[in-house]
């Protein structure tokens, strides 16, 4: 299978890979803690895109079942991702609370300054 063919048939999965890459880059490279939290969320939504794409069936309808309807896309990944989105927000809330607390204690959000303060 040529690269172009793969890109045309697996486009969403390549977007997943790129989103995961951007998320990892932000987690590693951003020195600002709030941007790290944003990076974590981008990584998460990359995984969500993987699940929802896996659930998709060409020509399928949303899984609201009626007599004689169909085909439908798979409802199970949708449920898992609904749960994951809410858990992700809870995670973000705790992370941001910690960020605000760190700022109150140390007066900075810069990772490198924080490391310096920690070593002193």
């Amino acid at each position: 299978m040529s690269v172009i063919d793969a890109l045309l048939t697996h486009y969403n999965y390549y977007a997943v890979v790129l989103l995961l890459g951007i998320g990892v880059y932000m987690l590693v490279e951003s020195t600002n803690l709030i941007k790290k939290v944003i990076g974590m969320n981008i990584f998460q939504t990359g995984i969500f895109l993987f699940f929802i794409t896996a659930a998709y069936v060409e020509g399928g309808a949303a899984p609201v079942v009626h007599e004689g309807g169909g085909p439908y896309v798979s409802p199970l990944p949708h449920v898992l991702i609904l749960t994951a989105i809410v858990v992700g927000v809870a995670l973000t809330a705790v992370a941001l609370a910690l960020v605000v607390r760190i700022y109150d204690e140390y007066g900075t959000l810069d990772e490198e300054v924080l490391r310096q303060l920690y070593h002193d």
């Binding site: 969403n12 969320n41 939504t45 969500f48 929802i52 794409t53 659930a55 998709y56 399928g60 309808a61 949303a62 899984p63 896309v73 949708h78 991702i81 609904l82 989105i85 809410v86 927000v89």
Partner: peptide, 14 residues
Amino acid sequence: LQAPDVGLTEAAVG
């Protein structure tokens, strides 16, 4: 991608 429930949640919560 035919996931309207996820879309609503993402728009409201995300």
